[in-house]
């Protein structure tokens, strides 16, 4: 049988706090203790297939603090964990894996250093390396978005870029719609359909999930392997549990825990 589709939560870390993103503007939500003590993240994680933790403002100075948080999180959730943000070379990747990551997520490194991407993939294997792309859709065309410069990159074609990720040996692709990011309006089905048509790797989609109804149509897209949400506040309490049960009732092929 094929493996199951995945429901994934993304925790966004920014200088000591976990945040919620709203069109790439970050809203502070709370610290680790808040996440686990008041928000009961352990309970929420019981309804997830995988966890993503991203350092949204990575620097050499905050790398250790971020990974210390990752270590604490990993010891409280019993699912695969993917780590992203600030991974520039094999040494960074090694630190992430040693902190308990099962996968690393590379984003701008694909544009900055193919050699380092390749090295990380060679050392840790395709299954452990996710290529991540932020994209913005303008007039039905999807452009790579560079959050460092807050602008779209018109020099690179997204389809060619994804092809390049495949050739480099990435194991899966995570795409995040900047248009929908943090809106809660739902995943951008049109752009996902476009990208799905030429992406040959398992596709994780992110950006826009705000309610239960947003997941089903997205999971129905054949090559969509995973739906990711970073929307902490919309999915508090039993919300993710309900999402999961709802999707299973709709015959979406998720794991039954």
């Amino acid at each position: 049988m094929s493996t199951k589709k995945r429901l994934i939560f993304a925790l966004l870390y920014n200088e000591g706090h976990f945040c919620q993103s709203r069109n790439f503007r970050l809203q502070k939500v709370g610290m680790y203790d808040w996440l686990f003590n008041n928000y009961n993240f352990s309970h929420i994680a019981e309804y997830l297939d995988e966890l993503v933790v991203i350092n949204v403002n990575p620097s050499d100075q905050n790398e250790d603090d971020f990974l210390a948080q990752v270590k604490k999180i990993v010891s409280k959730v019993f699912i695969p964990v993917a780590i992203g943000g600030g991974i520039k070379n094999v040494d960074n990747a090694k630190k992430a894996f040693n902190s308990g990551a099962d996968k690393v997520i590379l984003n701008s490194l694909v544009r900055e250093s193919i050699i380092d991407c390749k090295k990380i993939i060679d050392v840790y294997g395709s299954q452990s390396v996710v290529g991540s792309i932020d994209y913005k859709t303008i007039d039905n065309t999807d452009y790579i978005y560079d959050w460092k410069y807050n602008t779209i990159n018109q020099n690179i074609d997204l389809q060619e870029y994804i092809k390049k990720c495949e050739d480099l040996g990435f194991g899966e692709i995570l795409i995040n719609s900047v248009n929908r990011d943090g809106t809660g309006f739902g995943y951008d089905i049109d752009s996902i359909n476009r990208i799905e048509s030429y992406c040959n790797l398992p596709l994780m989609v992110m950006g826009g999930a705000g309610s239960l109804n947003h997941f089903k149509p997205t999971f129905k897209i054949p090559n969509v392997d995973a739906c990711v949400t970073a929307n902490l506040l919309n999915f508090i309490g039993d919300a993710l549990q309900n999402v999961r049960h709802g999707l299973l009732e709709e015959k979406i092929d998720l794991a039954k825990f």
Binding site: M1, T3, K4, R6, G125, S126, P202, D225
Partner: peptide, 10 residues
Amino acid sequence: YKVPHIGFNT
């Protein structure tokens, strides 16, 4: 299916 086998399976 693609190898490696990665993910939840029954």
